[in-house]
Amino acid sequence: MSHGRCATELEAIHQDILRMGTLVEEAIFDADRALSGQELLLAQKVIDGDDAIDDLEREIEAACVKLLALRRPLACDLRAVTTVFKVITDLERMGDHAHDIAAIAQRIGADRLIKPLIDIPRMSTLARQMVHESLDAFVRRDVALAQKVCKDDEPIDRLYTELYDELLLFIMQGNDTVRAGQALSLLFAARALERIADHATNIAERVIYLVTGTRVVRDHPSSTEL
């Protein structure tokens, strides 16, 4: 960020993004606890809290449009504004995925879980760490940290693939439609976490562009094609 004509507005937008990021991290954390610990009140909290994330996205977008209209940012300021547009979309989508996980927790309700959830909390912790670090990289303009976040996507993809195979067996082998339905729900939850990690990767890639001006070109899609 420069100390030029957009400095004050961009600083305010930064603060709002951090607020939005904090809400998203909380939502992911709570959604995982709601699912793994079957805490239904927490699930409702995540679902109710999604509006606040959406509101912040709209506020930040409006602030960016105003900045474009009034200050005509150039150079690093221009890259900052275009990056913010992308970052808030990613954050909003993460909020939606947390909402989806919470809804799955509600659907499973108090039913006995078909298996103890180990990989999903692990994925959740990794994804949350990626979200945190991607925003940290954004605020500190830290390319090395952003590159680390991009790499951190792989273990989550791997966990998702393993979980996919495992849950597929539940779905195919059992005659119990309730168990198969729960397996499918858990698969959707794992998929949501995998997508959250992808969005964190997007943010990290935008940070690299923001600092270096070079757009990251992916060799392969970061999300698994399952």
């Binding site: 420069s2 100390h3 030029g4 004509r5 957009c6 400095a7 940012p73 150039l74 150079a75 690093c76 300021d77 221009l78 890259r79 001006g213």
Partner: peptide, 20 residues
């Protein structure tokens, strides 16, 4: 150059950062 100036002097001029 507007998107990605290669020199801090250009960057400062384009962003109106006259102190820098």
């Amino acid at each position: 150059i507007f998107e990605r100036p290669g020199d801090p002097r250009t960057e400062s001029f384009l962003t109106g950062d006259y102190l820098t």
